[in-house]
Every structure is written in C-alpha cells, then in structure tokens.
Design a protein around this nucleic acid. Sequence first.
DNA 1: ACAGACCCTACAGG
DNA 2: ACCTGTAGGGTCT
Length: 374
Amino acid sequence: MAAQVTAFKRLEYNVCGELLLKNVLQVGQAFRWILEEETGHYYTTMMIPTISVSSGIVILRQTDDSVVEYAYSHEKWTSEQVERHLFSYFRLDIRLLEVHEKEWKLTDPNFAHVSTQGVRILAQEPWETLVSFICSSNNNISRITKMCHGLAENFGTQVGKYCGTVLYSFPTSEQILENGTEDQLRKLGFGYRAKYIMETAKAVVAEKKKHGLDYDYQLLEQMTTRGQSYEMSREYLMQFTGVGPKVADCVCLMGLRMDHVVPVDVHIGRIAKRDYNITATKKELAELKSEYNNLPITRKKVNLELDHIRRQLFEKWGTYAGWAQGILFFKEVGSTNGSTSEGKIKKRKLEKTTEVTPIDDKTFLKLKVAKVEA
DNA sequence: ACAGACCCTACAGG
DNA sequence: ACCTGTAGGGTCT
C-alpha cells in the first residue's frame, strides 16, 4: 500500500545560492536519498526525534535556484515541524554566501575563484551517520549507497511505499544486533565491514544500557556534544570498531554539527599538498603526538601527518572549515567520480534482491492510499 | 612505526 | 564479448 503523502509546500526560505539539492543529497554525504528522475523528486525516510522516534517519509524538489518544496508522510508530523526540521537538517541558520565572502575569501586566496555551488553540510542523525561512514572506508559512493539501503531494507522498520518503492527506516543498533549477523552482512555485500557494523551495534547497545539511554541519537549526542570538547568526542567515537579518525571526523561534522571539523581523506590530503603546500615538520608532528598523550584511543589510531593537515586547514578556514572542505571535496570529485549518476542508484536499488525481515506489527505504520500531488 | 591485507564491484583499458 | 587490472571519502594487525 502506498503512503499517504501531503501536498508539496514551499520552504519559507530563499535558498538562492545557499542550497542546491543535487550538490548536497547525492555526493557522498547522505546515502539514502533516492532521486526519481522523471520528476526530480528526492525522497527518503528520516526521524524527527523531537516529535517521534518513528521515521516518516520526506520528499523534496527544487523547482528553482531559490525554491525548495517539501512533502511528507507521518501521522504525527505537522508541516511547521517538518519545515523546522528541514531548516535544521540543511543548517539554513548558516549563511553560506556570507561565510564565503567574509571568512574564506579573506583568509584563503583559493576561494576567490571557487564558488560554493549550493554545497552545504547536513545535520544528519548521528547513529546513521556513524554507520554510513563505517561503510565508507576504502569504498566508493555507489556501493556505500547500496549498503545503507541494504541495512534499512533488511533490518529497518517498514515506513511506507512511495513511487513504487517500499521504504524502511534506518535500523537502530538493537535492530542490527538482534536480527543481523556478520555472515548475513557479508552476503549483503559489506565485505570486511560486516564485522565493524556488528561490533559497533553491539557496543552501542551496551553503551546505551550503561548510560540509561533509550535511543542511539541520545547516546551519541550526549557522549559527544554535551559539554565535550571536539577532541573528547572524537576519542569517544573512535572506541568503536571500524571508526578511525576520518570516520569520527565525518560523524562530528555531518552528524554532530561541528562545523569546524575537517575530515581528511585521500582527496583532501591531495588538495592540501597540491593547492596549499601543506607539509609537517618533525617538530610539529612531535608536538601533535604529545598532545594526544591523555587520549589513548586517539593516540593509537591517529595518523599524525593527516592530523597536521586537518589542523592547518582548520586554521586557514576557521569556524566553518568543515564546510570549506565540503566545497573543495565536491569540486575535486563530486562532479565526476563521486557523483554516482542518480539513475544508477535508483536502478541498482530496484535490481537489488535481498531477503527482507518480517515487519514488526507493533511498529509498522499503517498508512493509507497515496494521494500525491503531481 | 609501517606496510599489507582486507571485501566487493564499477569502471577502464586491452 | 570477455578479460584483467585498478581504485574507491580507511581501518586493523
């Protein structure tokens, strides 16, 4: 049965120059947005934790450089709440063009001829961000996308049907731990990351119990954001298997709203050396190392060379350094290699034939017949 | 410290 | 049409 979806409403915010959906939703930051090519609709399931921990469907379309419209399907959501959530999800509190003009252009000559192209950093759900980026190690975007959808389809809760596709929530740590095995994840194409996912799910379930928390997002937010320094947050995240400095930084930036954090991957590393001539002296590396004396996990996992690059780029770009990174990353690989053609994602998704776990009656959302505006 | 190994697969390139 | 090689938003041992 198809989900009952609201009519499209305009986001009451002029996104001109601030947000281009195609440069944000499918370039290796979020991995579960599906593009319906004929209509240009993007849709996915997501949670609005402040309202309910059950997921709903969100549909977006950009009709114009300055106009984004949204529709949704969830019994408890109101359009005001959804709009507020989208404002937060897209971090529209931050003025990209203003940051470009008043910060990056002033401290970095490279940004004089780099346009922001509507690339923004999202505020995603922390647990999904963590799992997604564990999947990202030594991997390409199209397979990460496939894996994230695989997790939802096999371990998530059915949310509803939209555009002929049955949609599932992103699974909780319990759903993965209780219904999944390493073998099964390997069969789903996770490779060696299967073990990382299972061990992290197990550890997160245990951590929640230890801290008396019910939900994954609560654990990650409380153990990292609340009164914690970035360094301590990263130390906490890196306790999980499959989480090194780069993955931890991605979670901090895209899941925990730490705008200054610059995840350094091979591409950013290349940019740092090629365009910024960043190299560390022995002395600088030694100083960095001593700073991690009291952080045993970080000390063990960090790559000092890359950490030096991360720091240099933060010093160059400042408060929104992570956003600057996002823009340069997109410029470097987003428009070629990184952006798996949307059609391929869709096609691959439909071709996929994997076992699907039975739906939990209690959590299954009863949704009525579709009434989608054309 | 530091290579190598690690799962898988979409692409090139022949 | 096949075939082989390579690299992909790293992490672990």
